[in-house]
Design a protein around this nucleic acid. Structure first.
Length: 601
DNA sequence: CTTGCGCACAAGCCCCACGTGGACGTGGG
């Protein structure tokens, strides 16, 4: 939804500018929270009236007026006024890691710095060093942030970050005396993009781990090296297998920051919770702790005693919990909350049963979206089925592209008919797995489908997906997707928006309307598991689940390795708290087949 | 600026490591 996105970025800018101007921090936070809430909304906010807007948590009178203002005039007067008072380039300066609002304001007031170019000049001529708290190390870190500007602070797709994190963890675990090591942060929460990597470890010999971490292959810069925390920048090509290092100065490509935290064994659970986040989730937990007479930090959950500022662990206060996450959640009278759900989106209200019923990787027993050499896949029908069977699946659907996807080798009707026969023959021969014939049918720009109904009727499974006209207006897109789902032969709405992370925005339909239509027609909404797609995205999944829509988690298999992407799809599903009962791929074969047939009855 | 309680106003988001410089800003979740 273009409107929500526009609104959210304006509110974010307002928060940043208010902060730079030293305004009331609650006002700043209110704008930042409103921006976050707006971004998570599945409804197009321009279609809501004032009362509906104010019903949203975080949106009050003032914000509701701003929404109406943007809808009616295309502008927000307060936003424009702030832009007049704050030079635009300062917002870029604020983005530089190591610089916060106080410092940026000081640089602006004292040195007249209003953009990145001014900052660079102030570093070179030494004037920056004259500001308070600008020591050699800090300036060096700013300089290095600027040198890596192309990538520093930029988020990378989860699928790129994951292999890097796994190698770091393996590297650290190989150090003598390391008893535990895991990655935490947004990667553990399964966010679609990752800002940096957080690695926790328990070690007998801290110095050995620090040394191993700061000198591991791929490190191009050590930002901090303290007793319990080290930060480095890593060259990104790591994930491409260039593990062996041998980097020259002019070889610097995109980098990602990785932090190592050394924690005491007794604090493992508390530390893992703290570094897993999200920040918002942690804040909720700490508020709850205080209300229950505890204080929570990364060392543990402690009985609250308010007499001193010194942290409890330093005074020898005994923690009531801290060794494991479930122990801490338990003392707070909460279910253990899956890491992926820790976003302050209502997860604290989950019961133990709800938490345990969330779908997991081992539950997935079928794949409903796969391609063969008949269109743009790399495997034959048999190879596809064999790979599915190795994963323990009971059903695989062969869904090659339809005719409009010419570049992807889409099938004309006569070829589709031959293909159906080939699939049926393979299914008759196959043992222990059911091979269904299907199609990934293009949803054309107007919402009509690429094959006629009499053709679709001959298929066991129809996945309908948008591939072209992905820049059309949101309202047109909403109608397009709904019209496709109204067709009684459609089972799954494939990658509903067509977004590609970091590359293409995709359709911006009114997702609430799309979800409502999916529920009405019994169509499953797909979470396309490829890490470049993850489409539906997490916030859409949560809204779909709350509306009771069925969810399909599919790998959109083209190549044998594509099955490995399932983990990313499942992480996204868990962020949306998908229960097993709503995930069609987690159903037993009989239930799945019954559902496929029932849609057409 | 929002929420909650109650119709005008108070309270709101925590707790820690690091670097700099001696108390504060930033970044971490």
């Amino acid at each position: 939804m273009a409107f929500n996105k526009d609104l959210a970025s304006r509110l974010e800018e307002m928060a940043a500018m208010l902060e730079l101007l030293g305004e009331n921090r609650f006002r700043v936070n209110a704008h930042a929270k409103a921006a976050r809430v707006v971004r998570d909304q599945t409804r197009d906010l321009s279609t809501l009236d004032a009362d509906e807007l104010k019903a949203i948590d975080g949106i009050g009178k003032g914000m509701a007026e701003r929404v109406a203002e943007l809808r009616d005039t295309g502008e927000i007067a307060d936003h424009d006024e702030l832009l007049d008072r704050v030079p635009g380039g300062l917002l870029d300066v604020l983005e530089v890691p190591g610089l916060g609002p106080k410092t940026v304001k000081l640089m602006w007031d004292d040195l007249g710095i209003i953009d990145i170019a001014g900052l660079k000049a102030a570093i070179e001529d030494g004037s920056l060093a004259k500001l308070p708290r600008m020591g050699a190390k800090t300036i060096e870190n700013i300089r290095s942030s600027l040198a890596f500007a192309a990538s520093a602070g930029k988020r990378v797709p989860m699928g790129v970050a994951m292999p890097i994190a796994e190698r770091i963890v393996a590297h650290v675990r190989a150090v003598d005396g390391v008893t535990r090591c895991e990655y935490a942060g947004s990667l553990r929460r399964g966010k679609d993009t990752i800002g940096d990597l957080d690695v926790l470890c328990v070690a007998e010999d801290g110095e050995a781990v620090r040394e191993a971490f700061c000198t591991m292959p791929g490190v191009v810069d050590v930002i901090a090296r303290g007793d319990t925390k080290c930060s480095v920048r890593l060259k990104m090509e790591w994930d491409l297998g260039r593990w062996s290092g041998a980097l020259s100065e002019d070889d610097l490509g995109p980098t990602i920051q990785a932090d190592l935290r050394l924690v005491p064994a007794a604090s493992w659970g508390a530390a893992l919770m703290y570094f897993t986040g999200s920040k918002e989730h942690n804040v909720r937990l700490r508020e709850r702790s205080l209300k229950m007479g505890y204080t929570l930090n990364e060392y543990g959950l402690f009985p609250e005693d308010t007499t001193t500022d010194e942290p409890p662990q330093k005074r020898g206060v005994e923690a009531v919990a801290g060794e494991s996450e479930s122990e801490v959640y338990g003392k707070l009278e909460l279910a253990w909350i899956p890491a992926e759900a820790r976003e302050d989106r209502g997860e604290l209200e989950m019961t133990q049963d709800e938490a345990e019923y969330i779908v997991e990787l081992a539950d997935i027993k079928s794949e409903l979206h796969a391609h063969t050499t008949a269109s743009d896949g790399k495997m034959s029908i048999e190879e596809l089925a064999e790979a599915a069977q190795e994963r323990g699946f009971h059903t695989i659907a062969v869904t090659d592209h339809s005719r409009s996807s010419a570049i992807a080798g889409g099938l004309e009707v006569d070829r589709l008919m031959e293909h159906i026969e080939a699939v049926k023959a393979a299914d008759r021969k196959a043992k222990g797995i059911r091979i269904l014939c299907g199609s990934e049918v293009d949803i054309l720009a107007d919402g009509s489908l690429d094959y006629d109904d009499d053709v679709l009727a001959q298929l066991d499974v129809v996945v309908a997906s948008p591939h072209a006209a992905l820049k059309q207006e949101g309202e047109v897109a909403t109608k397009r997707l709904i019209r496709a789902m109204e067709n009684r032969y459609v089972h799954v709405l494939g990658h509903p928006t067509g977004r590609l992370i970091g590359r293409r925005e995709g359709l911006q339909p009114d997702m609430s309307a799309v979800i409502a239509a999916a529920v009405e027609h019994g169509v499953a909404l797909e979470i396309n598991a490829h890490w470049m797609r993850l489409d539906l995205r997490d916030s859409h999944v949560l809204a779909a689940v709350q509306a009771g829509a069925n969810i399909a988690i599919d790998c959109d298999v083209h190549h044998p390795d594509d099955y490995d992407n399932l983990r990313y799809g499942v992480l996204t599903a868990r962020r949306g708290r998908v229960p097993r009962g709503l995930c069609v791929n987690a159903w037993p074969a009989r239930k799945l087949l019954k559902w496929l047939k029932a849609r057409r009855a």
